[in-house]
Amino acid sequence: MKRLLITAAVCVATMAAFAQNADSTKTASDTTKAKKGFHISFGHSDNKPHLDANGIDTTHYYEHSKAPGFSFGLTFSRFDLGLATLIDNGSFTLSPQNNFLRYRSWKTSNVGFDLLQFGYRFNSAFKIYVSGGFDWTHIRLRENITIQKNAPVLTYTQDDIDYSKNRFSSTYLRIPLSFDYRSHEDANGRRFHLVAGPDVGLLLNGRVKQISEENGKQKVDDDYHYTKMRYGVFTRIGYGFAGLFAKYYFNDMFENSPAQDGLKNFSFGITVGF
């Protein structure tokens, strides 16, 4: 997981550097013009220069609407990094039967990104697309317990070990359907984004990772009764390259484990790469 996050961070940093360089190039080009600002032109370009009253070419200020069309390809976008919160039957306080899942709020995280995308652009301002990627939720447990593998319901044992890390995680293949509104570019070449839609996740695996002086580092994989298919909604809002995200899943985090009925997952944080 650390290698994956490092790779993702390098990709994000590279994309950010490219975007910054593009902005710098555009800014340098703009300084050669006598008039600043930007105008919007609709329709197809006639490939002729647009001259102002002083005869200066201002063609670079015009943004032509894109023709409708489909798109498909690989991507590395919508990199989410935030906090995960458990909601127990509408409450942020865990009920007694779920108290063993008490977690460290600032170390319980959600990470995800998209790698594949298929969409349709209606115009320059609006498009719809379905994408595929990965999504991790890491619950940093407070209690010195071990969630049991292959148990009939979600259960645990109390350990006489002081774990320096006791993490309970899930990995999902995420398949969101996005409705993406984008404003026209401003003078700096940046847009305002508002994206929302439904999100479906397919469980890939669950994991318990523990670190202690007695046993060193241990990892055990199982489904741990995480729900096989989760469904919910998400929203992203931002400007330029970055923004904020929120995700909420309607069905329970765990299945075939009656004591955890009504326990749901909500995540929020920053997102990079619209």
Results as ranks from 00 to 15, higher is better:
122 F>Q: 13
122 F>R: 09
122 F>C: 13
123 N>R: 10
123 N>W: 07
123 N>E: 06
123 N>A: 10
123 N>F: 04
124 S>L: 02
124 S>F: 02
124 S>I: 00
124 S>K: 05
124 S>C: 03
125 A>L: 10
125 A>Q: 10
125 A>F: 08
125 A>H: 07
125 A>D: 04
126 F>R: 07
126 F>T: 04
127 K>S: 11
127 K>R: 14
127 K>N: 10
127 K>Q: 15
128 I>K: 09
128 I>T: 15
128 I>D: 09
128 I>Y: 11
128 I>R: 10
129 Y>L: 01
129 Y>K: 01
129 Y>V: 00
129 Y>Q: 03
130 V>W: 06
131 S>G: 12
131 S>Y: 07
131 S>C: 08
132 G>L: 14
132 G>M: 15
133 G>C: 14
133 G>V: 09
133 G>I: 10
134 F>E: 13
134 F>K: 13
134 F>S: 15
134 F>G: 15
134 F>Q: 15
134 F>W: 14
134 F>I: 15
135 D>H: 07
135 D>V: 04
135 D>L: 08
136 W>G: 02
136 W>C: 10
137 T>S: 11
137 T>W: 03
138 H>C: 14
138 H>S: 14
138 H>Q: 13
138 H>D: 15
138 H>M: 15
139 I>Q: 07
139 I>F: 07
139 I>H: 02
139 I>D: 02
139 I>M: 11
139 I>E: 01
139 I>R: 06
139 I>N: 08
140 R>T: 14
141 L>K: 04
141 L>N: 05
141 L>G: 06
141 L>P: 03
142 R>V: 00
142 R>K: 09
142 R>Q: 03
142 R>L: 05
143 E>C: 02
143 E>G: 05
143 E>M: 05
144 N>P: 05
144 N>E: 00
144 N>K: 05
144 N>G: 05
145 I>H: 06
145 I>S: 00
145 I>D: 02
146 T>L: 12
146 T>Q: 11
147 I>L: 08
147 I>R: 04
147 I>Y: 05
148 Q>N: 12
148 Q>K: 09
151 A>S: 15
151 A>H: 10
151 A>F: 12
151 A>Q: 12
152 P>Y: 04
152 P>R: 07
152 P>M: 07
152 P>N: 11
153 V>N: 13
153 V>E: 14
153 V>Q: 13
154 L>E: 02
154 L>Q: 00
154 L>C: 08
154 L>M: 11
154 L>N: 03
155 T>R: 08
156 Y>N: 09
157 T>H: 04
158 Q>A: 15
158 Q>P: 08
158 Q>R: 15
159 D>F: 09
159 D>P: 03
159 D>A: 12
160 D>N: 09
161 I>P: 04
161 I>A: 06
161 I>Y: 08
161 I>Q: 00
161 I>D: 05
161 I>L: 08
161 I>C: 06
162 D>S: 07
162 D>W: 06
162 D>G: 04
162 D>T: 08
163 Y>A: 00
163 Y>K: 00
164 S>G: 08
164 S>P: 02
164 S>V: 12
164 S>L: 12
165 K>S: 09
165 K>F: 09
165 K>Q: 13
165 K>H: 13
165 K>L: 05
165 K>T: 09
166 N>K: 03
166 N>V: 01
166 N>I: 00
167 R>W: 06
167 R>Q: 13
168 F>G: 00
168 F>C: 02
168 F>T: 01
168 F>M: 00
168 F>S: 01
169 S>E: 06
169 S>I: 05
169 S>N: 12
170 S>A: 15
170 S>M: 13
